[in-house]
Design a protein around this nucleic acid. Sequence first.
DNA 1: ATTACTAAAAGACGAGTAA
DNA 2: TTTACTCGTCTTTTAGTAA
Lengths: 219, 219
Amino acid sequence: MADINALKKLALLGAIKGPIQLSSSSFAKHISSSTQTASRRLQALEREGLISRSILPAGGQHITITKSGKDALRNECYEYQKIFEPIKNEVMLRGEVITGLGEGQYYMSLEGYRTQFKDKLGFIPYPGTLNLILDDKSTVLRKKLDEDEGIPIHGFSSQQRTFGGGKCFRAAIEGIEGAAILPDRSHYPNNVLEVIAPKNLRKMLRLKDGGEISVRVVL
Amino acid sequence: MADINALKKLALLGAIKGPIQLSSSSFAKHISSSTQTASRRLQALEREGLISRSILPAGGQHITITKSGKDALRNECYEYQKIFEPIKNEVMLRGEVITGLGEGQYYMSLEGYRTQFKDKLGFIPYPGTLNLILDDKSTVLRKKLDEDEGIPIHGFSSQQRTFGGGKCFRAAIEGIEGAAILPDRSHYPNNVLEVIAPKNLRKMLRLKDGGEISVRVVL
DNA sequence: ATTACTAAAAGACGAGTAA
DNA sequence: TTTACTCGTCTTTTAGTAA
């Protein structure tokens, strides 16, 4: 694995938000090394896909941290938080409502899923999922759901095709009982959270795209 | 600087809470290295005062992360959090009320400090400080106060002795207006926060030692 | 001024081994 | 079994240099 510390320094210099202009020599000071090593670090980080750069003809370079670079940093952050955070059996996640791919409605209408949710969560989900794009802090905390086994939802097959499994967690969406669902093979990036509830959450909470809500997920 | 990653692993194995029993060979697996390197890592961490160990005659060793080891981890944690946390001009700190060294009462009665607080905060502090022992999460966040310049409080001299300076921050203690004070040379470890207010906080909030309160510090 | 190569110095690694 | 030494090897670093 590449030098995560160098990546951290770049993030702290602002490369997490957008491209920053930086020369190898000035970066060398930040990581207290020679310019050669600084240059090599940047090469290595680029090679591993953690940053992307464009060397400027005038000198210096534009550096941005890529998605997988952010993931690596998020993971580190999460591990350090785990050291100091008290062990809780719940996570508070905040995010912005977005319109999903529309497939949630289809899946939630299938008997194979509906009966499982009924049995395991005690409610029949409203046909449709509410999708949230989590803020950065919540995206870090969301990793906790990956580590926990949660309530398993099994896949099944119809004559035409197979439907994948996953897991879910009881959750309170702005106080309303529901669940967060994590398909084994999600179509969404890790900063998107799918939630379901017995009722239409969009209507009940009068939500529009871009509206911010918080979800308390119980592990 | 020593291998912070090895220290992180030890923390995740529980060495932050108390001594853990661990052999070099089992630690080797956790850091994916040879037993020799694992042994060397532990030696290095001990040499730098980040962990303390006692090698057991039966084999294996007891390992605890020291105070300065915790500080190093807290610092890492804080830096990673800074990457993802939105830039806020306030920090929420939580902690437990403790009885301090009693010197707060003396210092807060001195004109040299009282007039400065009056001028800079707009209130004359009640003679006495309330001391909080912060929880781990808050201790990490408290570092933000170290980095900010805050409102400076200058030192002064009487004929007998000199009194040190420091800085303070406006704060709301359970909603009551006050301030957090950070002497340049504090007698307290970094998980203790001293707060002042125009009134006697202990009385107003009916606080006893061990009572938990939260302080919103404005930067 | 840059970036990034090559080559020599420094450092880290794991095998073998002692206690 | 352990911990931790030495030693040969491999890796990483910096100095020097080119583009």
